[in-house]
Design a protein around this nucleic acid. Sequence first.
DNA 1: CGGCCTGTTGAAAACTTTCAACCACAGTGG
DNA 2: CCACTGTGGTTGAAAGTTTTCAACAGGCCG
Lengths: 256, 256
Amino acid sequence: MASALEQRLAQHLTLSFAERDALQWLERRERHFAAGEIIVRENETTDVLYIVASGWLHGSVRLPDGGRQILRFYFVGDITTSFSIAWGYSAATLTAVSACTLYELPRERFGRLFQEHPRLGAMLFGISAAEQVALADRLTSVGRTDGQTRVATLLLDIYSRLRVVDKLSGSAFQLPLTQQDLGDAVGLTKEHVNRSLRALESTGLLERDGKMIRINDVEALAELVGFQDRYGHVATDWLPPTANRSDMDQRSAAAE
Amino acid sequence: MASALEQRLAQHLTLSFAERDALQWLERRERHFAAGEIIVRENETTDVLYIVASGWLHGSVRLPDGGRQILRFYFVGDITTSFSIAWGYSAATLTAVSACTLYELPRERFGRLFQEHPRLGAMLFGISAAEQVALADRLTSVGRTDGQTRVATLLLDIYSRLRVVDKLSGSAFQLPLTQQDLGDAVGLTKEHVNRSLRALESTGLLERDGKMIRINDVEALAELVGFQDRYGHVATDWLPPTANRSDMDQRSAAAE
DNA sequence: CGGCCTGTTGAAAACTTTCAACCACAGTGG
DNA sequence: CCACTGTGGTTGAAAGTTTTCAACAGGCCG
């Protein structure tokens, strides 16, 4: 079976054999988590990263007053670097939304990837930048729009991700989140999320049936709430060339 | 004069000669902008990045309804990669807050850095992750706290950055932002920013005199609003060794 | 001097939260 | 099999926060 991270990167560029091999080496240590399980806690010491092989997770923080902010969701092919690589601890709590399979890798093995495959390192930097923009989009949504728009934007965001990573066809998908979760992601109370969802339903652009969400007119809804899909394309024209074979041999010889 | 980016990176690790040399080559093309000038517009095609040599800037987006969200501020030593490297266009408008000097470099030269100096590439990835967490902190502030807390958090955030990049001593600093700007950064109207600032002043934790801000008790204010300073330290223990074999010994020195 | 931008203040309107119910459903144990 | 219990969803009304609208003051500049 093809590597989750490999598949993600292959969406953007053609990988060399050596690169594909290196990526598969990152996914040696497989771990399983049940829905709702906590993988890493906020402020907990950690020196490992996770690559998502299947399932959903989210990263969140708690507030002094007991509130919670969900910062981002992780899907197949994502790496949970952002909240833990810059420090010896995790800046967020990582929770399994659905049952999921993760590959655990030591931070320092991730670091070695930058040396052995600079092009992949640069590409990961680019993907990280794209994720930063996605976070910025959420900030804009939460900071400057009303409840209905925030909820719709989150659903469109999740839908766009699923469409890419799960090859989702059609505009209906299973949403394994409570309304409290949605509220914690967009800065609303669960009651207001409920009212916002019903208001959206009443426009006819959205339908719900239990945990199932159907966006009847993706274009129209995106237009209505000013949503931009950032996941489609990531530029690769600035990347350095792939290390060629002789380069590879030199570097691995030096590394041994 | 030492390179701005070099100084930034040298805060976290000991650079080799080759690395320092490479960084200085990024800063060949110097450009000046006046306060208020726009460097890049949202959605504008661009294939260059900027390293901040002096001054302040901010990145922002406009909303359909005419509103604006300021996404982040840039200070000396920052690189404006996040909103433009992943696409052929800029996802945000880059505006000079104060008069500033920038180094302009082609995206693809930045990419080459990953190949020639993998350790620096990895370090830039780490710094980018730290910036992502800073953005996540702002999201939390905007999504889950009241006006007064948001404003205080932003001021503490800016203060923490200035303290590091400008070697600011004392707890007073010049804030070249209007109350509208502050509001656009934390998701409030300018009127409410004004009321929040006055409420903060009345607690005695903060003083204002024109554009001057003095935080009388940084600890107490940070405690009050639950602010965490993320800029102090970035982990380097996961980085690969420097490319040049003769520099290998530098790494242990950098391990702090 | 007269505009223009920024800051300030007050009061009404709008949005969101809080609080308090009630409903539906799934899993549990009698 | 069925009552019991807990979680998540739904709804209404009051309370609280923030925005909107309107007005005015001060400083800077042509």
